[in-house]
Amino acid sequence: MNIDWAALGAVFGVSLAATVALVGLFALGVVSLARQESAGARSAGGAARTGQVLAYACFALCAAAVAYGIYLIVA
């Protein structure tokens, strides 16, 4: 009986890092978008535009992660 500690450690590390990174990224996008909406209601300034761009960049990265997930399932 040999327990593959290396694989277990890798699972732990990768899962932790990927989850926190992804959730953080997505949360950043959601929050920026929400802020942009409330800011946009007052004045359509540059800050609102920046928030929007940031939000979509975050979502695009998350979409890429989902695509990679599907690739992992199919492969």
Binding site: L16, T19, V20, V23, G24, F26, A27, L28, G29, V30, V31, L33, A34, R35, E37, S38
Partner: peptide
């Protein structure tokens, strides 16, 4: 950890506005 992070990032945001995204 991920949950903590979402609450930290969204502490100034309106819950209703973010709920849809989540």
């Amino acid at each position: 950890l991920a949950t903590r992070l979402t609450f930290r990032l969204g502490r100034h945001a309106d819950d209703k506005a973010t709920a849809k995204g989540y």
